[in-house]
Computed example of a mutant assay.
Amino acid sequence: MLELVQTPVTGKEDPSELTPQLAALSEFYRALNNRDLELMSHNWLQGEQAAMDNPLGGIRRGWEEIKTVYQRLFASPSEYWFEFYDYSLHEQDSLFYVVGRERGQFTAAGISLDMAIRTTRIFTFAQGQWRQVHHHGSIEDPELLQRYQQAVRGNHP
């Protein structure tokens, strides 16, 4: 039976106490929650194979397009934090992926939202380390999705 992990990955974990796969996942959340574009760049596979599909950026292909989404987020005055939980980890050869949920808080322009996102992240072993090659995030609740998009874009009802 597949194990579902409830202990959240926050980016605050000690990488030396994690498997290399979980260390790569933790590195992503450390980069995200600390607005660290250099670490984010280190986490993602550089090149055209990388792809991201999320509620804000639509589909982005290649690191250069993906990077623009993080640059915009990191430069914004919004406050946020995210963690990954309720997940399963799947491995095969030089690939692993995690399927689970993100939760967190996002605050912009006086609007604070409790976030709930279904998330899949895929990593490949390249250049001697695990690098993220794909991310898909979906917000199930249509009202939350609308409020999140409005808060990020600054056009509130």
Rank of each mutant, 00 (worst) to 15 (best):
Q21V: 01
Q21W: 02
A23T: 08
L25D: 00
F28V: 14
Y29W: 13
A31D: 05
N34D: 06
L37P: 01
L37T: 00
L37K: 03
E38L: 03
L39V: 04
M40F: 12
M40I: 13
W44Q: 08
G47T: 12
G47R: 11
G47H: 13
A51V: 15
M52S: 13
D53E: 05
D53A: 13
N54D: 15
P55A: 08
L56E: 04
G57D: 11
I59C: 06
R61T: 15
K67R: 12
R72D: 12
L73E: 04
P77H: 01
S78V: 12
S78E: 14
E79F: 04
E79R: 13
E83N: 07
E83K: 06
E83W: 03
F84H: 04
D86Y: 01
Y87C: 01
S88E: 15
S88P: 04
H90M: 02
E91R: 09
Q92L: 10
D93F: 05
D93I: 00
L95V: 15
V99D: 05
G100M: 03
E102W: 00
T107K: 00
I111Y: 04
S112W: 09
I117E: 12
T119P: 06
I122R: 02
I122D: 01
F123M: 05
T124V: 15
F125T: 09
A126K: 13
A126E: 10
Q127R: 13
G128K: 05
Q129S: 15
R131T: 10
H136N: 07
H136W: 06
H136T: 02
G137A: 14
S138P: 07
I139V: 15
E140L: 10
P142I: 01
L145A: 10
